[in-house]
């Protein structure tokens, strides 16, 4: 654990510190606690999705359908709210998580039982999910005035100085840190992606493990779907369009290896925060927000180059050993 922190996550933490330091040199207001809370809150949806995506990538898969899942689940809970405004929020939350998990399971079952490459499955379900939103609504929006106040209030309610949205992200970080490091399923994700062949020998069903990864990713996407539509108080077909790539970017920047088996919850958190800080800092430092896309692209490329350097396995180093011996 210490070693992992030292190599990947610590490096990223230092980079984030430097980034904040640079911004604060000219714009000290950016590192005011209230502003940092804003930044964290704004990044919370990305953190939730990045955790789910990290788990999927750990198992050598990828989930390109997260943003579409988010949009579909968001629309479904909005429509439920529209039809039954009195329904308690706990039910809405349960529906969001459950429905998202169901969509994730659909991905997972295709990957597990039919062994279809995950990129193909989720490329397909991504377009299907968005299409289904259109079928449900005929392309119409669910607007703020159609949502009940309780429905919209949840992510904004402030508890102990932090909005609930942020608290949910924090809870997810803690919960999944424990799941990934202290449960058999968590370790199975690492094993199934790091060495699928060996995992089978250790009694781990690789396909089923991937299925659970997709289910978790789906559940988190569903939860984020409700939080997203209630926070912005609007639901429509193109909610979070293209966001799946930002999520993958957060993971890559967070040191998650696309080849599977390498990654951590703190890494995903830091990767998401890095992108979140940039997105929030641009308007502050007077750079057009149009720079954001290019910057995150550049960050992905730099991160993947650095990750590759860090993970390069050294050769046998026969001569060195010989020198030591003599």
């Amino acid at each position: 654990m210490k070693r992992i922190l030292a190599s990947r996550e610590l490096l990223l933490l230092v980079a984030i510190g430097l980034l904040l330091g640079l911004i604060s040199l000219r714009f000290p207001a950016f590192i005011a606690p209230s502003k940092l809370v804003d930044v964290f809150n704004d990044t919370s949806p990305l953190i939730l999705l990045a955790i789910g995506q990290m788990i999927v990538i750990l198992t050598k898969c990828i989930d390109l359908s997260v943003a579409a899942n988010l949009a579909l689940t968001g629309m479904v809970v909005s429509l439920i709210n529209l039809a039954a405004p009195g329904l308690p929020i706990t039910v809405i939350l349960a529906v969001a998580i459950g429905f998202g998990a169901l969509l994730g399971m659909f991905n997972g079952i295709l990957v597990w039982k039919l062994a279809i490459p995950p990129i193909v499955v989720t490329l397909g379900t991504m377009t299907i999910f968005r299409g289904v939103i259109f079928l449900l609504t005929d392309g119409k929006w669910v607007n703020s005035h159609e949502m009940s106040d309780a429905f919209k209030a949840v992510p904004r309610t402030v508890i102990a100085g932090l909005p609930v949205l942020s608290w949910i992200a924090i809870a997810a970080v803690i919960l999944f840190t424990v799941v990934m490091t202290r449960t058999s399923l968590g370790r199975a994700f690492y094993a199934a992606g790091g060495n699928p062949h060996a995992a089978t020998y250790a009694g781990i069903n690789v396909g089923r493990t991937q299925f659970w990864a997709f289910t978790i990713s789906g559940a988190l996407a569903g939860l984020t779907g409700y939080l997203w539509v209630s926070r912005f108080a609007v639901a429509y077909v193109d909610v979070a369009g293209g966001f799946e790539l930002t999520v993958v970017a957060a993971c890559v920047i967070g040191g998650v290896s696309i080849m599977g088996g390498i990654g951590s919850v703190p890494g995903a958190l830091l990767g998401a925060l890095f992108l979140g800080i940039i997105a929030n800092a641009l308007p502050v430092v007077n750079i057009s927000p149009f720079w954001q896309m290019a910057i995150s692209g550049g960050a992905i490329i730099i991160a993947v180059v650095l990750n590759a350097q860090a993970n390069r396995t050294p050769g046998r180093i026969i001569l060195k050993r010989a020198e030591h011996a003599t």
């Binding site: 449960t183 370790r187 094993a191 060495n195």
Partner: peptide
């Protein structure tokens, strides 16, 4: 050798049958 490079030595030894403590956690 069917092992996992990214896991610790102890985790490699006990993967699949790790001792469980409170709440079923490893």
């Amino acid at each position: 050798t069917v092992l996992f490079d990214e896991l610790s030595v102890a985790e490699n030894i006990f993967l699949g049958h790790a001792p469980k403590g409170r709440f079923g956690l490893i």
